[in-house]
Amino acid sequence: MDWDKLQYFLSVAHHGTLARAAQALHVDPTTVSRRVSSLEADLQQTLFERAPAGFALTAAGRALLPHAEAMAAAAARIHRAEGRSDLSGQLRISVSEGFGSSFIAPRLAAFVAAHPEIEIDLVASSGFLNPSRREADMAVLLARPRKGPLLTRKLADYSLGLYAPADRPDWRKAVEQAPLSRAGIAVIGYMPDILYAPELDYLGEIEPGLRATVRSSSILAQRRMIASGAGVGVLPCFLAAEDTALVRVRPDQTIGRSFWLALHRDVAPQPRVRAFIEWLDAQVREGRELLVPS
């Protein structure tokens, strides 16, 4: 069996689309498609179901996958014996905008320096890519997914609190003494009609019926609006605690949430995936006081 063609098969199986497989292999999608089709012709079997959303393994493809992965593992052992690193390739991580931008990104330099052959895509946005469909190798989600061929576990708890601009002590006093709905201060928060996760619907935990009057789909925009004096709002403590333009108000009111790690079962054994998870676990342990202030 042609090992070269099997590498293309593995890349499509792991990444789910021709485009991502081609990017990981540093070739064009046409080459990937041609090699996979050639392998199917050699085996006289259809290995993938082609669909607009991507490539899904057929029964024949699923039967071939463990054998191809065993060959890849053997090749990796040979590379290690020759002194070459198997910690290479593309790694795509989907995370929420705030956690990705304010917690992972500032700490990522050490991982990059330790593993220079790993190419990292940090997708930090308002919404998540789906590891079940191989849109990402792993995702840090706001809730535990209940469906799909995924390995999931809690990554960390985190706290949110009510914040005001540091240069408005009068607002701090007003918020401490009266309900926000009667304080005459704008409340900043998410747009309810495009809320990308129900776990972000937390204003009612500050006061029943509380609603935002200045809204954004971006938590980073909300932080900037609060810091600049547009109003008060709820922010993750890891996002706001070290910003000198913000001050916590009503510190006795704390909202608790969790981050959940999810990855497709097929990518879990990959060395680059294991290395990143070990690194991320260490960052979460070291940053616990920032995530859940005492």
Rank of each mutant, 00 (worst) to 15 (best):
T31C: 02
L6C: 12
G54N: 08
S181I: 07
P179M: 09
I78Y: 04
R211Y: 08
A230Y: 15
I188S: 01
L87T: 06
A76S: 15
R285K: 11
F259T: 03
I255L: 15
P116T: 11
A74C: 05
A164Q: 00
T46C: 06
G287W: 00
A178G: 04
C237K: 02
S125K: 02
L220D: 08
A143Q: 11
V267L: 02
S218C: 11
L150H: 03
W260Y: 15
A178S: 12
G233P: 06
I93G: 00
E135P: 11
D252F: 05
T31G: 07
I185Y: 01
Q45D: 06
L150P: 06
V284S: 01
A53T: 13
M225T: 08
I206D: 01
P149L: 09
V284D: 00
G98I: 04
P52G: 10
A63W: 03
T31M: 11
D28P: 03
A124M: 08
V36G: 01
V187S: 00
P116E: 09
L155E: 03
F103P: 02
W171Y: 04
E135D: 14
A41E: 14
A110F: 05
F103R: 04
E69G: 11
D170G: 14
A81F: 12
G204S: 08
L263W: 09
S11G: 06
Q222A: 14
R250L: 10
